[in-house]
Design a protein around this nucleic acid. Structure first.
Lengths: 237, 237
DNA sequence: GCAAAAAAGATTGCATACGATTTGTGTATA
DNA sequence: TATACACAAATCGTATGCAATCTTTTTTGC
């Protein structure tokens, strides 16, 4: 368990019900792309899978729907979200607006312990990049997201942290869908640079590096529509 | 019905179930302070009030909980949120981070029809300020929030728009709790200035005006804790 | 053989029921 | 009188059942 996960637990596992636990597992599966976009998530299926009633499964799906990871259609069911290129652009526009500010806030509050946590996070990223295979690639995307979540946690604004959780999760979907290549190594080095700026207290540089980093990630996406947009939508692709 | 409401409906009323309708009514009541912070919202009570089963009432309360307008405690129930001063600061920190960017985005996309809608919105604000009495004051806070929501709608980013809906709703709570005086007239004139900047295409100025506007709103709050902070927290005040 | 209509099947929307947990009250005892 | 215990009331957490809606398949007519 890495540090971001710990923070995550600290925020969420103090919670109430089984629905949240199911939501977390489903979210992980979606973000890791074990559940492909468009996959149907029927209440009954989810319920039996996690050994709870439809009531609880339904609550979990509702939460994911709020986060934008699942799309529900009345009387039809829930499906893993399939973000359109336009949605993808909006996700990154939102991140470009928010994350430079988060970097500045984090820079103003970062402690030595935080820096150590960042270093550990970077190490983990490096390990996944060194590995090969589809599983490593999944872990890579996830670890990259965890870096941004850790930054948001350090920034110390719970509201922005939750926004970032949503944006990072949706970004993972977008990257899995539209990602072109191995931004990974490049992204990793940029993460390292950002941590460097944080460590040396250069907040302006951290903010600017973050902005460029996001630009690079988005530049690696192929957001051209493949088929007719109307058709794609009609077919749920 | 003003323009922001229309956009709101267009976004949300195309939705599915009665739970959302109930959520909207409850949210309005909370934002308008007809439901005071700390008020208990029992599932059964809400259900009978809206003539639905607890299942539906529960779903509505869950949604409000996600938006931060309601706080739920396991086996105890749901309560209208009672944001702490720290939470209030985080709300405004988030808005200072996001809204100047939204102003720029809106400035780049604003149409003549949008400007007309802004003017209508400003007129409505002015009417409420001219009126007196507690109801007028409520309407005033609401209208002021609607201005910001309209701006977010014009900006054209659905994700940021949703974030703003949450932030504006929570701000209304915060202002109702910690607001000191009549920022109203001052806020109104600032709104007018922002629309002016939008109309003349001066995006930088619109962004800056927004930032100052938010600073003014927050400066009007009295965020000093009244009793011992630990006690207040323990007592949920 | 093909298209349209009808029936069957599956899934959600919602209500209700029951057990579990918490809170409030009353009584007995020190 | 104050405290501790026990019981009762209220509320939530969850499961399940039925009706409504949508999808798919089968049947029927041309």
């Amino acid at each position: 368990m890495n540090f971001a996960d710990q923070i995550y637990s600290a925020t969420d596992s103090a919670t109430q019900d089984r629905a949240q636990a199911i939501r977390d597992q489903l979210r992980d599966a979606i973000v890791d792309r074990r559940l492909a976009p468009g996959t149907k998530l029927s209440e009954g299926e989810v319920g039996t899978l996690f050994d709870v009633s439809r009531t609880v499964a339904r609550a979990a799906l509702q939460m994911l729907s709020f986060e934008g990871l699942v799309r529900t259609e009345r009387n039809r069911g829930a499906f893993v979200a399939n973000p359109s290129p336009e949605e993808a652009r909006q996700v990154f526009a939102s991140r470009r607006l928010i994350e430079p500010g988060i970097a500045i806030a984090a820079c103003g509050r970062v402690t030595a312990a935080d820096i150590a946590a960042f270093k550990a996070q970077l190490d983990e990223e490096g390990r996944f990049i060194a590995e090969r295979g589809p599983n490593a690639r999944r872990s890579e995307i996830r670890a990259s997201g965890d870096f941004h979540l850790l930054l948001a946690a350090v920034a110390g604004n719970a509201i922005l942290q939750r926004f970032m959780e949503e944006l990072v999760a949706r970004s993972s979907l977008v990257i899995a869908l539209y990602g072109r290549s191995g931004i990974s190594a490049c992204g990793h080095s940029e993460h390292t640079e950002i941590v460097g700026a944080l460590g040396s207290g250069d907040c302006g540089r951290a903010s600017l590096l973050m902005l460029h980093h996001l630009d690079h990630i988005e530049a690696d996406l192929d957001l051209r529509v493949r088929a007719s947009p109307a058709l794609r939508e009609a077919l749920d692709f």
